[in-house]
Amino acid sequence: RLYEREDHKGLMMELSEDCPSIQDRFHLSEIRSLHVLEGCWVLYELPNYRGRQYLLRPQEYRRCQDWGAMDAKAGSLRRV
């Protein structure tokens, strides 16, 4: 689950498959919190699986710093 605000607030989007462009699919370029329910995912800073990568394991991420990012920029997401 992807959230537009910290602490799992605001608009929530659910994802169960790879997403090459978060902007195209959800009209957002920033994700401020996440909740990974199962499996491991890689969040990429840019669309089409480019830029900085962040490995996400099943857990709650209340803010972008929790997954190691300096800002909430999110371009794509892929399951590993």
Rank of each mutant, 00 (worst) to 15 (best):
C64M: 07
H35W: 07
H35R: 13
P20C: 09
M70L: 13
S29L: 11
D66G: 05
V36I: 14
M13D: 04
M70G: 11
M12K: 06
Y49A: 00
Y44G: 05
L34C: 11
V36M: 03
Y54M: 04
S29F: 08
W67A: 01
G68R: 03
K9L: 13
C19V: 07
Y49L: 01
H27E: 12
S16M: 07
E30Y: 11
R32I: 05
E4Q: 11
E14D: 06
D24V: 07
Y54L: 03
R52S: 09
E4A: 11
E14P: 09
V36F: 01
L15C: 12
D18P: 04
G51W: 09
S29W: 12
E17W: 10
R62F: 12
R52C: 05
F26Y: 06
P20A: 14
R50Q: 14
R1L: 13
L46A: 15
I31R: 03
P47C: 12
S33P: 02
S29V: 08
M12F: 08
E45G: 06
E38N: 15
R50D: 05
D66T: 01
I31F: 03
E30L: 07
E14A: 11
P58D: 11
A69Q: 07
L34H: 02
S21M: 01
Q23I: 14
R32V: 02
L2P: 00
R50E: 13
C64Q: 02
M12H: 06
Q53N: 14
H27W: 07
R63V: 10
S21F: 04
Q53F: 07
K73W: 08
Y61W: 00
G39N: 04
S76P: 03
E38A: 13
H27T: 08
E30D: 07
Y3C: 04
R63P: 00
M70I: 15
A69N: 08
R1G: 02
N48H: 14
D18C: 04
G75S: 06
Y54P: 00
M70T: 13
C40R: 11
L55F: 13
L34W: 06
S16C: 12
Q59V: 09
K73G: 08
L34Y: 05
M13P: 00
L34I: 15
S29P: 10
R52Q: 11
R1E: 03
I22A: 03
R32K: 14
K9A: 11
P47L: 05
C64R: 04
R50N: 09
G39I: 01
R57T: 15
E4M: 14
L28W: 15
L46Y: 11
I22G: 01
S29A: 11
K9F: 05
A72E: 06
F26I: 05
A72H: 07
L28F: 08
Y49T: 01
H27S: 13
G51P: 00
L34S: 01
E17A: 10
S16A: 14
E30P: 00
G68T: 00
E60V: 12
G75H: 03
A69M: 02
S76Q: 03
R62Y: 09
L56H: 00
M12Q: 04
Y44V: 03
A72N: 13
E30S: 09
R5M: 15
Y49I: 06
C64H: 15
L37K: 11
G68P: 03
K9V: 07
Y3G: 00
E60D: 09
L37N: 07
N48M: 12
G10P: 00
E17C: 11
P58K: 11
Q65V: 15
S21H: 10
V36G: 03
S29T: 14
Q65E: 13
M12I: 09
K9N: 12
D18I: 03
C19T: 06
A72C: 12
R62V: 07
L34M: 15
G10N: 04
G39F: 03
Y3D: 02
E38Q: 15
Y54T: 04
C19K: 05
D18V: 00
Y44N: 08
E17V: 09
Y44M: 01
C19F: 00
M13K: 10
L11H: 11
Q59C: 13
S29R: 14
I31D: 02
Y3V: 00
R62M: 15
E17H: 05
G51L: 02
L56Y: 01
E14I: 09
Y44T: 00
V36S: 00
A72D: 06
P20W: 06
L46K: 13
H27N: 15
R57W: 10
R32A: 08
Y44W: 05
L37R: 11
W67E: 00
A72Y: 07
E17T: 09
D71W: 08
S33V: 00
R62S: 13
Q23F: 12
S33Y: 07
M70E: 15
S29Q: 12
R50M: 12
R57Y: 06
Y44S: 05
S76W: 06
Y61G: 01
I31V: 15
L15H: 04
W67L: 00
E17R: 07
R62T: 09
S29Y: 11
L46F: 15
Y3A: 03
A72S: 13
R57L: 09
S16G: 13
A74Y: 03
C40A: 14
S16R: 13
D66Y: 05
Y54V: 06
R57S: 15
Y44Q: 05
A74P: 03
D18L: 00
G51V: 01
Q65K: 13
F26T: 10
G75P: 02
Q23V: 13
P20S: 08
N48Y: 14
L15P: 00
D18Q: 01
E45P: 02
L77E: 00
E17S: 11
R57E: 13
D24W: 06
Y44L: 04
D71F: 11
L43Q: 05
E17F: 06
P47A: 13
I22V: 11
E38K: 13
P58C: 08
M12T: 06
I22F: 06
P47Y: 01
R5G: 12
Y49M: 00
G75N: 03
I31N: 01
A74L: 07
E6Q: 07
S16K: 11
A69G: 10
M13H: 08
H35P: 03
C19L: 04
N48D: 14
G10H: 02
L11S: 12
R63W: 03
R32C: 10
S21V: 05
E38L: 07
R63Y: 09
L37W: 02
M70R: 14
M70Q: 11
F26D: 09
I31W: 02
R57F: 13
L46N: 03
C40Q: 15
Q23H: 12
H27A: 13
Q53S: 15
M13R: 09
F26S: 04
W67G: 00
H27M: 13
R52H: 08
K9I: 04
Q23C: 10
G68Q: 03
R63S: 12
D7V: 01
D71Y: 11
S16Y: 12
G75E: 00
C64F: 12
C64P: 15
D18E: 04
E60I: 10
L55A: 12
Y61C: 01
D71R: 09
D71I: 08
R62E: 05
E4H: 05
L43G: 04
D7F: 10
H35Q: 15
Q59G: 15
E6R: 04
L34Q: 03
R25T: 11
R57A: 14
H35I: 14
E38D: 15
F26N: 04
A74C: 10
